[in-house]
Simulated assay, not measured.
Amino acid sequence: MSQPPSPAIKGRGAASNPEGRFETLRHQAEDDGWQSALLDETAPRPRTEVTEERARSVISRNDSPDIAFTQAINPYRGCEHGCIYCYARPSHGYLNLSPGLDFETRLRAKTNLAEVLRAELGRRGYMPKPINIGSNTDPYQPVEKRWRLTRAALELLADCHHPCTIVTKNALVERDLDLLAAMARERLVQVLVSVNSLDNHLAAKLEPRASAPHRRLKAIGALASAGVPVGVLVAPIIPALNDRDMEAVLEQAHAAGARCAGYTVVRLPYELKALFREWLALHAPQRAEHVMSLIRQMNGGRDYDSDFATRMRGQGVFAQLLERRFEVACRKHGFGRARELQLDTSRFVPPREASPQGSLF
């Protein structure tokens, strides 16, 4: 007898833990019919485990033509937010962990991040360019409250007058308003807050441990009030699931203080395809096939197309409609595009190790 579909787990995005694509062993669960219901009822919910990691380097670089930044740092591997659509899930396979529950429960914290970042910024010949914080996993996910690695990175960047951009969907960003406001006065920072729906019930299933949509809008307001340049990302847009909220998100984000906006469509690389289908079967079974049909229409008939020219916005009639709706709403509210501001790299001062000789040499 085949194992029945995994039930939804409260507070988690994924319902299962499939093997990553790099694993050499495969496990197939079988149900013999004995006490399976009792086991399901008594099984404990998976808890978040954080393992310390000593990173050898922390600045990653990319030359993708559809990404606005060329440098990034990610304080954590994995993300407790548990967003089921997260394109970073397959990266957990490099740790021999699953892109499913492992990605949101078995995290890695780069505890020497500030130390390694200091060394990389201080290398001879380093050319300052804005560093994005949170390109792969959210720098303000719940575990940041304890580990404070994002805070440590910001403190170093502020000391060096190094520009950065931040992408988050957690109101914890407000904790660092003191640093962000000071950096903003020197044109050293821009924050982009991701809000892809105003439906709390949907968000609780799509992004179970991220801040609720209304709370993110309040964070936009707090950032704007502090003088921090802030924008909104309506991302990702999932057709027939959250696309109806695009205009309302833009309207409320602008009212809160956002002055630039961007969007992307959902991307389903590698193992993410199966995880997302599983989520649809559990949480939106009546529209699951319709959602996937529209996703395929935006990807040339496939679940995912990695072409740089189309992967962020999609292709076809539905993608064109989304683009048109976004442009009309942005014009209505006077939004700029969510790209890097002209952040100031001229103030950068390389960090230096403390020396008993002071600053003579």
Score class of each variant (00 low, 15 high):
residue 76 Y to M: 01
residue 320 Q to K: 15
residue 221 G to F: 11
residue 298 M to P: 03
residue 130 P to N: 12
residue 105 T to Q: 10
residue 119 A to C: 00
residue 296 R to Q: 15
residue 209 R to K: 04
residue 263 Y to W: 09
residue 294 L to V: 01
residue 212 A to V: 08
residue 33 G to R: 14
residue 161 H to G: 02
residue 335 F to T: 02
residue 49 E to A: 12
residue 22 F to C: 01
residue 62 N to I: 04
residue 224 A to G: 12
residue 323 E to A: 15
residue 101 L to N: 09
residue 88 A to Y: 13
residue 243 D to K: 08
residue 225 S to L: 09
residue 66 D to M: 10
residue 77 R to D: 06
residue 155 E to W: 11
residue 116 V to M: 06
residue 136 N to D: 07
residue 180 L to E: 07
residue 20 G to A: 05
residue 219 A to Q: 03
residue 329 A to S: 08
residue 327 E to K: 14
residue 83 C to E: 00
residue 293 S to C: 07
residue 299 N to R: 14
residue 324 R to T: 04
residue 177 L to F: 09
residue 271 E to Y: 08
residue 193 V to F: 07
residue 321 L to I: 02
residue 199 D to R: 05
residue 133 I to E: 02
residue 310 T to A: 14
residue 306 S to F: 09
residue 341 L to R: 15
residue 201 H to Y: 09
residue 252 Q to E: 06
residue 37 A to N: 11
residue 337 R to W: 03
residue 139 P to K: 07
residue 351 P to C: 07
residue 101 L to G: 11
residue 70 T to F: 06
residue 209 R to M: 04
residue 26 R to V: 12
residue 10 K to F: 14
residue 287 R to T: 00
residue 117 L to R: 06
residue 251 E to L: 05
residue 19 E to T: 04
residue 302 R to N: 13
residue 65 P to E: 02
residue 154 L to G: 04
residue 143 V to N: 05
residue 260 C to Y: 15
residue 340 E to S: 13
residue 220 I to L: 07
residue 229 P to Q: 04
residue 42 T to P: 00
residue 108 R to C: 10
residue 243 D to L: 06
residue 144 E to R: 12
residue 42 T to E: 07
residue 7 P to E: 01
residue 347 R to V: 00
residue 263 Y to D: 02
residue 63 D to G: 13
residue 210 A to D: 01
residue 249 V to K: 06
residue 310 T to D: 00
residue 22 F to W: 14
residue 23 E to K: 12
residue 216 R to N: 04
residue 280 L to T: 00
residue 308 F to A: 13
residue 351 P to W: 13
residue 325 R to I: 00
residue 219 A to F: 09
residue 89 R to S: 01
residue 82 G to I: 00
residue 359 S to D: 14
residue 246 M to R: 02
residue 214 H to C: 08
residue 315 Q to H: 03
residue 22 F to I: 00
residue 326 F to W: 05
residue 305 D to F: 09
residue 167 V to N: 15
residue 75 P to H: 13
residue 309 A to H: 09
residue 354 A to R: 10
residue 3 Q to K: 10
residue 245 D to V: 01
residue 241 L to S: 05
residue 314 G to Q: 13
residue 312 M to C: 12
residue 138 D to C: 00
residue 237 I to K: 14
residue 68 A to T: 08
residue 211 S to F: 06
residue 149 L to D: 10
residue 29 A to G: 13
residue 93 G to F: 15
residue 159 D to M: 04
residue 310 T to K: 06
residue 324 R to N: 05
residue 182 A to R: 15
residue 304 Y to K: 10
residue 99 P to W: 15
residue 42 T to L: 08
residue 30 E to Q: 15
residue 228 V to Y: 13
residue 241 L to D: 00
residue 231 G to L: 03
